[in-house]
Amino acid sequence: MDMQNVETQLEELKSSLEALNKKTAENKLAMIIFSGDMDKVLASFVIASGAVAMGMDVVMFFTFWGTPVLRDKKKNVGGKDIMGKMFGTMLPKGTGDVKLSRMNMGGMGTAMMKSLMKKKNVASLEEMIALAEELGVRIYVCEMSMDLMGFTREEFIDYKGLGFAGVATFLQEAQNSKIQLFV
């Protein structure tokens, strides 16, 4: 085999290796938080922070019922239409308003669970979000859900690494993630 041939083969090998590297999943976790239930969102943040501890890059997408969980109770925005005002009032305004998916019992169950969590030293949803921010967990809020429910960017929590995006952004992240979860 002559040198020319070897070089050509080396080039082919290099380009196929590059193509392969592009296909290899990164050590990343991509999650969709569709649910707005307190327990499910809490579990999501437990997994997210655990994943960072395991050395993973984590990205969370909040969509549909998950969207209002990230609203900031202290922020008020005006200029909404009737539907927007209605959704704004009826949907939870932040972590303080979210309920358990089961055994809520008119709010009693959720209150009991919160006090039990405190007693058992389980971090609250607020604490878990603060931890996620500290750990560098990236969060995207679904623009389509926001538009549907009449939410503006201004009414979401202050969170380093908070972005607003659509399905393509999620898929791009999910495509090269080792783990993808839908909650």
């Binding site: 437990v46 997994i47 922070s49 655990g50 960072v52 501890a53 395991m54 050395g55 058992k120 030293n121 389980v122 971090a123 931890l131 750990l135």
Partner: peptide, 14 residues
Amino acid sequence: KGLACPMPVVKVSK
């Protein structure tokens, strides 16, 4: 001591 999941693992990784 006293910490619940996921805190022990988060703290030890730091």
